[in-house]
Design a binder for these strands. Sequence first.
DNA 1: TATCAATTATCAGAAATTGAGATGCAAATG
DNA 2: CATTTGCATCTCAATTTCTGATAATTGATA
Lengths: 265, 265
Amino acid sequence: MSGITRYTRILDLFTEDQGIWTIMQMSEALGTSTSTLYRLVREMVDTGFLESTVDAQFRLGPAFVNYDRRMRMTDPLIQSGTKFLQPLVGHVDIPATAILARLFGNTVMCVDDSRNASPRINTSFERGKPMPLTRGATSQAIMASVESRRLKRLLDAEGSLDAAARKAFSKKLGQLRRDGYAIAFGEVDKGAVGFAVPVSNRGLGIEASLSVIVAERDLTEQHRGRILALLATHANLIETFMEDVRVEMSNGLTAPQQSKTTKFS
Amino acid sequence: MSGITRYTRILDLFTEDQGIWTIMQMSEALGTSTSTLYRLVREMVDTGFLESTVDAQFRLGPAFVNYDRRMRMTDPLIQSGTKFLQPLVGHVDIPATAILARLFGNTVMCVDDSRNASPRINTSFERGKPMPLTRGATSQAIMASVESRRLKRLLDAEGSLDAAARKAFSKKLGQLRRDGYAIAFGEVDKGAVGFAVPVSNRGLGIEASLSVIVAERDLTEQHRGRILALLATHANLIETFMEDVRVEMSNGLTAPQQSKTTKFS
DNA sequence: TATCAATTATCAGAAATTGAGATGCAAATG
DNA sequence: CATTTGCATCTCAATTTCTGATAATTGATA
């Protein structure tokens, strides 16, 4: 075992389904000696990535909550977008979820969510959830605004679409680009409808989308128009705000470098 | 450099103040060669701990949002407490912040927060913020319910209190234990008053507290009583809920081990 | 096509990691 | 109170990985 995977292998054991592990269980699951695991786990406890709890068990530790905060405080999209989700969803008069999602490397991940009070429809859109790249309005609105070479690399990495499916997908994205929004019926959750518009800032390297998810049975033609209008105006607000953040940053003391090349996917 | 610190040294550069770094800047800050940093950073980008962005710069990546979610979904305290913060703060009729904080190893960290709508008083209590161990009602309510040997170890690790100060602190904690709540005036933020009660579950190894923070100028004697009553009832609700979670877990298929020893701090 | 910065690859010496088993430690038991 | 038990740490030699200087490559831009 080498590099960071020595640690991520362990962290990845801690899923939603099993959030608590003993050293023995880890040893069996990973095929690594308990000596080594005791050593690695101790390092991770010391740095806050794991927490030691009762009955010789371990859980994910406080480091994640802390780093997550640092991210919220410094990510221009989250900074700009988070304050508009509540107003957006507040203006929708059926049960709805608003989400802000962003493309990171090869994954689309939801970075913030907001629900309008009372009856929650059960959607799997939620802060911290990685999204399928090609299914759902949320991802499609982002993919439609990604430049073609990058899109190709993303789909290659994803690898779920064959040549024919990819062609169809490209055509669909072309339509989305012309429309300026994406709608998807039950592509992620059965019975849910997603509406999404792109949000981006080239200068900050941010490709994102703003979505509203509602239950199909609640939806009328009127809501549809209203939701699309709300999305357009709120996406605009977020982009404006983000541009302000960008300008502030480049006026700041930490002057950015002057090149425009980057090779990391 | 060895172990997990190879990576955490890098991650710890990404603070609230500077959330974006180039390889060169990291190299200068850490005194490590760019070869090595390119290699380490690539690993971290591949695993989502960092993100590559424009102008050859790097930011914290999506892994933290994702692990944070796993934690929220599996931590019994967060699961139980999060739904009561909004109602709690909703019942306070002056601008207030409710927070849920928990002792992890040697740190007290805020794991959830909620504000009652409109005018935000500026407090530094916020999800993801580590708290000083001995200052503020939030931490004191927790420290008061920690068993004495553990307390000693915590204060040793912290190391900010000399013998005399420690004695005074112990006396204070004794009083808190008798009162059942802690009140602190401006110990963390100037002009803020914190009220806190302990929340714990021995069987789950959880020592936490529930707090309400308000501005001193808004506070009357009436509010004081009301807030303490609200805290007591809501803390009770959270503890009851958490006990249900515990019982569910031990009835589940993943049977826990049978010992009661743990040596990790 | 040439140029330039960013990034990756190569490689040998230096350093860290691994796992088996011994040891330490504290709580539970008789 | 001595003993047992289970969790956690320590030791050490064989093995693997890491480091940093330098060379090669990539991709955007002029």
